[in-house]
Design a protein around this nucleic acid. Structure first.
Lengths: 210, 210
DNA sequence: GTCTATAGAGGGATAGAC
DNA sequence: GTCTATCCCTCTATAGAC
């Protein structure tokens, strides 16, 4: 990969995160990269193609950097801890803002939609592995769809990131509330045998009736 | 309010939902409304002002239409039921897509940010009332921040809507998984006295240690 | 591979007639 | 209040020199 190509990819990521998908143009990205505007089209054909490539590569790299950490998660408390540091680091790096903007743009651009789906799938795969391990000994295992839960977690992060840009304090409140709820699941697993049996029986009954 | 103003507001809402915030221009909105492009600026000054007004009014009207239904919610099961019909109707009407696009645009436009914050606050107020009633007799009451939970629910809807545009099947899976989890809370409230005491004691211990 | 220059389209916004 | 006409800007994309 040439220096210019790499510079454009990095700049595209920066600009999408900072200016939003609506503010991302060939001129702005090229200026950010310190290269000529025409090189966007020489190397990537279209602006959309550049943005899609940049987002895909960034997401893949980011997911890979969390693979081991997520796979090693063994309890709800650990999952919540990893989730919080993951959220903080992804937010600080701008990856979360980029993902949110990518998904907003994906609503009417098929190429961005494909990139967004790829990125979400990459995250979902790793999160699902962690969720599977965490639920292995939980009474929740029988009624919970792990794939669905992993997707809900991913989508929730996106929503929180957008909310963060609108009301930072409210978003922190929301995150804290979710962590409290996550702790409840941990508690279910740590109950004594009697209470645990009661919960389990109740869960079984309810899931049949649904 | 003149016919033209109303037509422009309705058209702005439609266009933002259909074309996204990046595809919303004075010309497109005016064409959708069947009026002259210059009238956007005569009536609203700027395109952004028109979009912000349209989103604010739509959100206020929508929240108002759910006020009674949400306030009457008495159990988790009821809250989940209202949540599902609310989600379906808001999605069908395009309000959810508009909110998601508004929040994406809000990341770099202060006027849109103000509109988005207003809309989210309006929803949060009503959702929080419902959450408060639902948690009134729950062991979760002591450790749960109701305002934070309401905000998490709102942000979650936004994330799910964006995810829906990228992977409709995955979004449905996520929604179903969340409903399963919601049912767990309901179960906690319906446990027998022994189990309930065990859960309550455990919750109290954990919340102190956090 | 990189540059300049530019075509061609669309967009925000205003002036001025009606 | 509404219309036409227009200015000026930014945008994508390409042609062609180097």
């Amino acid at each position: 990969m040439t220096d210019t190509k790499a510079a454009l990819l990095a700049a595209a990521h920066t600009v999408v995160g900072r200016e939003g998908i609506a503010g991302t143009s060939a001129r702005v990205v090229a200026a950010e990269a310190g290269v000529n505007q025409a090189l966007v089209f020489y190397h990537f054909g279209t602006v959309t193609e550049l943005v899609a490539t940049a987002c895909t590569e960034a997401a893949d790299a980011s997911v890979a950097s969390y693979r081991e950490e997520l796979a090693a998660v063994g309890s709800f408390t650990e999952l919540l801890a990893v989730g919080r540091t993951l959220h903080e680091r992804e937010q600080a790096s701008g990856n979360l803002a980029v993902m949110a903007q990518l998904m907003a743009g994906a609503q009417r651009d098929p190429l961005l939609a494909a990139a967004a789906q790829h990125a979400m799938e990459a995250w979902n795969r790793e999160v699902e592995i962690a969720v599977r391990r965490v639920l292995a000994d939980s009474p929740l295992l029988e009624i919970t769809d792990r794939a669905g839960l992993a997707r809900a977690i991913g989508a929730g992060f996106i929503g929180l990131e957008l909310y963060e840009g609108v009301d930072a304090e409210g978003a922190q409140q929301a995150l804290a509330a979710l962590e409290q709820l996550g702790a409840v699941a941990e508690i279910l697993d740590d109950l004594g045998p009697v209470a645990r049996r009661a919960v389990r029986a109740r869960l079984r009954r309810t899931s049949r009736s649904t």
